[in-house]
Write a protein that binds this DNA or RNA. Structure first.
Lengths: 198, 198
DNA sequence: CCCTTCACAGTCAGCTCTGACTGTGAGATG
DNA sequence: CATCTCACAGTCAGAGCTGACTGTGAAGGG
């Protein structure tokens, strides 16, 4: 790896990082190539040298964002306090990952993808691996005696959809209403489902 | 009501309708005042006469969109086939309302509101009445013996959050995976919760 | 019948964004 | 050491958007 290659990679990474941060802090609509360029402290030529079109830049940024969110779940999981109840602990972990600004940015992209074929394609590609990984982490955190239940796949799906709904609702109602009681109630329901006879 | 007033109101309504349609079909980012103007078949002067700023135009449009979605739930409800099971019927009705493009546009605005204080304020105002109405409709469709259950408020909240999550997920996964089985399973769970001893 | 008002028409200035284009200097290569 | 390559700098043209501004003709009041 020559000095040039290192410099190239460093600049490229700064651009992608700046794009991701812009998506998180400014939102998708306000994340122009100029905004990214300024945030990265890079010339126009540098940006266009690495990413000839806006689409390529945000294609890379979205991949990075999704990956970052995936890792955030793992990190939350690793540092979550031990809890005798794996369901409560797992839900807390997932909830706090889903409530982050970074995940909010991802959901914003999902919503915007509704009217953009290109964005949808980019997101589908990026989500592919992350989706599998998310379900795997959910399985890990809940433990084998939960994942062994015949109702487990359904519980996992319902949980993911519920958390997505709560994440979107947070934008408007986070301050208005505490969502944690709802999560605890969901934990109770989950235990009830898993305990039910097959 | 003079001829002038009628004309004024007609033009204003065309503009708001065009703005709402643009939000639904093109998405928030692509809904410029020019796009609305062209869609409404109106001159620049006319648009700016009625709505001096972009914000005022979309403020009115968002109010209309939310109201339209609120009525859509009622309409779906009115024409839903009779069903001996009020839970299954209610969930079908809600699901099909939440899956409409019109509701997708609303969710897109929610997501975009994350990084825009103004948009959040507009949405909060518009959602106020609609939110209460939504819960009232849910109560109506499920019937008094369900709403009487002590677990009902929780079930209503969980259902709304779940449906929002499913609506967002539709953008990427509608074609990939049929969501209806999940809804049926949620109906089963709902019945189980409501049947449980207080 | 005149005069005012007002809904709307059409043009325009100023701004921002995207991507193209040319120049430059440090690092790789012989 | 000479030359070449390439990562990057900086400027610019073209396009789209917002909101301002002036003009116009029909509706309505006196």
């Amino acid at each position: 790896m020559t000095k040039r290659d290192a410099q190239r990679e460093a600049t490229r990474q700064r651009l992608v990082d700046a794009a991701v941060e812009s998506l998180i802090e400014e939102g998708y609509a306000a994340s122009t190539t100029l905004a990214v360029q300024r945030r990265a402290g890079v010339s126009r030529g540098a940006l266009l040298h690495h990413f000839p079109t806006r689409e390529e830049l945000f294609g890379a940024a979205i991949g990075q964002l999704v990956e970052r969110n995936e890792q955030a779940v793992r990190r939350e999981l690793a540092q979550a306090p031990a809890d005798p109840d794996p369901v409560a602990r797992g839900l807390q972990v997932l909830r706090s990952a889903f409530a982050s600004p970074s995940f909010g940015a991802e959901l914003e992209l999902w919503a915007a993808a509704r009217t953009s074929k290109e964005l949808r394609a980019v997101l589908r590609r990026a989500e592919g691996a992350a989706r599998r990984d998310l379900y795997r982490v959910i399985g890990e955190v809940l433990g084998p005696e939960v994942t062994g239940s015949p109702a487990y796949p359904m519980v996992a799906d319902l949980t993911v959809q519920l958390l997505r709904g709560m994440a979107i609702s947070d934008v408007l109602y986070r301050e208005a209403a505490d969502q944690e009681p709802l999560l605890e109630q969901w934990a109770t329901v989950t235990r009830m489902i898993l305990a039910a006879r097959p």
